[in-house]
Design a protein around this nucleic acid. Structure first.
Lengths: 193, 193
DNA sequence: TAAAATCGTTCACTTAAGTTAAGAAATGAA
DNA sequence: TTCATTTCTTAACTTAAGTGAACGATTTTA
């Protein structure tokens, strides 16, 4: 389980044994049951997450309706908006599968950064990469229809379509569950011709 | 014109006269005519922009159709995706008004960072702020209808609705120009009742 | 300045998403 | 295991966006 994390980090910076031990001693690994809510609307938090195994999702509740905005699976990091903006969260974060993740407090970040400047580099690279990825996702979302978005998702994250409840997937695609059902039937019909 | 830039920077870090002079000596100020294209699809570039006066937009050309994804006006910074990813650009950037901006090369960034570590801090803060802003924009886009998006834009950036051509605004909202016209007529009709 | 191109709006028609409702299937809890 | 709840799908109907075309207004440019 630790190895998954170190394997991920090694893609960006190389760590010494000392540094690895320092991370392990922080005791950041958590095992969380399906359905657990990690963050609620209105709460303040300084915790960032990194998913080692499983799946978590972020969602707003607007007009007592859930609006799913993102899913995070293996090897994906999530720093909630409220951690950056230092304001109460406007959305929820919860586990849709039994999940193993690391929880790192932003205070902890400061401490470890002073000991190992390498982590600052790691964080900068990750944040730049995330910004780029998010911009691409946004552009793709804007420039395509719900059907195109679904087909795109099938290409890029086929696992999500399997492991995530349909109504959450629909919301993520910006449509209602009924529309997703219909849309899928339509695609199936087309492929038969 | 320099003052606009320094006023902006002073919100995040305070600069000495030496540091200000260092920036001025970089000769980064540019005056650009309406219609000028700053970056084309397929081009490589290391240039980031900061708008002092005027308006620039980013857009893709898909199926020979322009898809506008963003507008940048006074006091807004834009680092193109291709600068981060170091790949040819997939979109265009052009001026929709006569514009005064700063152009800063990412190599220049390295040079100035080594002389004035303060700039690294400035960049980190700006990039974090941008990430948060972009996430909020994305979430709002996903969770609302074209009509809600338009009304939201009227609230948040009323200047855009005035200064930007309608067909570019429509594309930015994720719809066709005809739909924007209709949607506006619909809103006007409702407000009469 | 005149001709050409672009732009914004309106209209009629088509297509797809929202809504409401109902029933089957899967899931969870007692 | 059974009962209750949630989830997924289908259907009929409503609403809104896409499409193609037309027309006047504005802007460009030759």
């Amino acid at each position: 389980m630790k190895n998954i994390l170190f394997e991920f980090i090694s893609k960006y910076v190389s760590l010494t044994e000392d540094e690895k031990n320092a991370i392990v001693s922080l005791d950041i690994f958590r095992s969380v049951k399906k359905g657990t809510t990690l963050l609620k609307e209105g709460q303040k938090s300084k915790d960032s997450y990194f998913v080692l195994k499983g799946c978590i999702r972020t969602y707003y509740v607007l007009d007592s309706e859930e609006k799913t905005t993102a899913f995070y699976t293996e090897m994906e990091a999530l720093t909630p908006l409220c951690v950056i903006s230092k304001t109460p969260s406007e959305y929820y974060i919860s586990c849709i599968e039994d999940t193993i993740l690391t929880v790192s407090n932003s205070d902890m970040g400061v401490e470890i950064n002073s000991k190992f400047p390498k982590f600052e580099t790691l964080c900068r690279i990750l944040s730049e990469e995330l910004l780029a990825k998010q911009q691409i996702d946004f552009d793709e979302f804007k420039t395509s229809s719900p059907e195109q978005r679904y087909l795109n998702l099938l290409q890029k994250r086929p696992d999500l379509v399997q492991r995530v409840p349909q109504h959450q997937l629909a919301s993520f695609l910006g449509i209602k569950p009924q529309s997703l059902s219909r849309l899928r039937a339509r695609i199936l019909e087309k492929s038969k011709e």
